[in-house]
Structures are given as structure tokens and as C-alpha cells.
């Protein structure tokens, strides 16, 4: 009896300890959520501020309005937006094809040059990619694909070197049992048929993951886009264009407009991402586990 009571007491003790720690964690999570959301709340609020266009030390606008959004039409913003959108779509299609070709081959085929090829690409990846920009700029300039015509040039550069990023999807293909391929091969399918009829339907999550990340790439790329579009507004993407509004000489007139532009850029990407979040999480987790 006494023993039983004792264990009850202990049990209760664990339960209250648990309840306390859960409460603390809940409080921590709420605080964290606030910290993580503050910048986004601020940027939305500031985009509706119309009493001044420069940076201020308060968050809630004194006068509300949508002037900042309307004013975007008087700038090159929508041109940049279109540029980025075109790049996003083209890169999403082409890069996905290339990455899948690469990762599928390296995961499934055993050929003589496979290991050396992978080692070579590992070493190649240790060079800062930025180094290549200087020559790419000169070469693209000779081809007439810089400045105002930067969009096709940028697509070319993004897509051409995308084969290097095969790790995540290779990890995924590695998890599909090889016995499936072999069974189909025994039944007389060619290697190409195995890919289209057996592997592709199974690889839907990784295809979506690759498309999603490829599409988001041009929206966030800053350095290459800035280099290739060098000073020509017509060839910029949103990142380069909006960044120009925050230079010391422009921030006074354009700060609230930057906020409005940022909100418009973020919304479609955000919606797309939230819809496909499941696949993204799968890809990120798998990629880290398999290296």
C-alpha cells in the first residue's frame, strides 16, 4: 500500500514536471514565432505607409494607403518581375531535366568513369563559382547576351552548370530498389524504358522538389544576375532591381516602395512553396541524411 502510494507520488511528480516543461516550451515557441514573424509583419505594414517614403523608427503607419503598390507601375518593377518569372519557368523545366539525367545515371549505372567523375565534380565544387563570372560575362557579352539581353544569358548559365547539384536527387534514386529495374530488364525493357515506365512514376516527390528549388533559384539570385545584367535595368531580376532602391542615394525616395515590391515578390513564391511544402521537406531531409 505504502509502496503503491509512493509510486503514485512519483508518477504525479513526473507529470507536473512534464507539464511545467511543456508550458515553458510553449512560451518559448510563442516568443520564437514572434521573432520569426516580426520582419514580415513589419515589411507588410511599411508597404502601406504613405506619409513618408524613407526609413522611420516606428512600425504602424500614421497614414494608410496603397500608393506604394500603384507607384510600382511607374518604375521598371514589372519588367523585372516578368524577367524573373520567365527565368524561373525556363530554369525550372531545363534544370529539372538536366539534374534528373545526371542523378539518375550516377545512381543507377556502373560504368568505368563513374567514380572519377564524381570525385572530379566534388573537387570542382570547391572552387568558388563566382570566379567563373568574370569570363562568363565577357563571353556572354561577345554573344550579345548581357545587360538588356541578360535574361537568355542568365538562363543559359543557370541551366548549364546545374548538373553539379545532383546530390539530393541521387540520394533519392538510391533508395528505389534496384530489383525493380532488374525485373523490368529481364522482361525485355530497354534502359530508357525502365526510366520512363518504372522510375519516373516513383520519383514524383523528387521531381517536384527539383522543380520547386529550380523555380525559386532566379527569384533569390543576386550576384550572378547583378554581374550579367550590369547596370541595364531592362535585364535585371527582382533581386538586383529592388536592391538598387536601397542604395544610399535612393533609399530616401524608394524605401516604402521596396517594401511593397518585396511583398508582391514574396506572395506567389510563398503560395507555391506552402502548397508543395511536403515535397520540399522530404527533399531537404533526404539530402542531408544521404549527403
Amino acid at each position: 500500500m505504502a509502496k503503491n502510494q509512493n509510486s503514485m507520488k512519483q508518477h504525479m511528480g513526473i507529470r507536473t514536471a512534464n507539464a511545467i516543461s511543456n508550458t515553458i516550451i510553449h512560451i518559448l515557441l510563442v516568443i520564437m514565432s514572434i521573432i520569426w514573424l516580426i520582419p514580415f509583419v513589419c515589411i507588410v505594414l511599411q508597404s502601406f505607409r504613405v506619409e513618408s517614403t524613407w526609413q522611420v523608427g516606428y512600425v504602424i503607419p500614421q497614414k494608410w494607403g496603397i500608393d506604394n503598390y500603384l507607384n510600382l507601375a511607374n518604375t521598371d518593377f514589372w519588367k523585372w518581375y516578368l524577367n524573373t518569372f520567365i527565368m524561373g519557368v525556363c530554369v525550372a523545366i531545363l534544370q529539372t531535366i538536366i539534374v534528373l539525367c545526371m542523378s539518375y545515371t550516377l545512381s543507377r549505372f556502373r560504368f568505368k568513369m563513374r567514380k572519377p567523375l564524381m570525385q572530379f565534380m566534388l573537387i570542382l565544387g570547391m572552387f568558388p563559382g563566382m570566379l567563373a563570372m568574370i569570363i562568363l560575362y565577357r563571353v556572354l557579352k561577345d554573344l550579345g547576351l548581357t545587360q538588356a539581353n541578360a535574361v537568355p544569358g542568365l538562363i543559359l548559365v543557370y541551366v548549364a552548370s546545374s548538373g553539379m547539384g545532383y546530390y539530393v536527387s541521387k540520394g533519392f534514386f538510391d533508395t528505389i530498389p534496384k530489383s525493380l529495374d532488374e525485373a523490368a530488364r529481364v522482361d525485355g525493357a530497354t534502359r530508357a524504358q525502365v526510366l520512363y515506365k518504372i522510375i519516373m512514376p516513383l520519383a514524383k516527390p523528387i521531381v517536384i522538389y527539383t522543380i520547386l528549388t529550380a523555380f525559386m533559384g532566379p527569384w533569390g539570385d543576386f550576384v550572378l544576375a547583378r554581374y550579367i545584367s550590369f547596370g541595364a535595368s531592362a535585364g535585371m531580376n527582382v533581386a538586383v532591381g529592388l536592391n538598387n532602391w536601397l542604395t544610399p542615394d535612393q533609399i530616401g525616395q524608394n524605401y516604402t516602395m521596396f517594401c511593397a515590391g518585396g511583398v508582391i515578390v514574396a506572395i506567389p513564391v510563398l503560395i507555391l512553396f506552402m502548397c508543395l511544402q511536403k515535397y520540399y521537406v522530404e527533399g531537404v531531409t533526404g539530402g542531408a541524411v544521404k549527403g
Binding site: G220, V269, F273, Y280
Partner: peptide, 9 residues
């Protein structure tokens, strides 16, 4: 959310 919103913004 922080991943979904383009990093440059």
C-alpha cells in the same frame, strides 16, 4: 516561412 520568402527580401 523564412525559407519560402526569397532570401534577398
Amino acid at each position: 516561412l523564412t525559407i519560402a520568402i526569397p532570401q534577398f527580401i
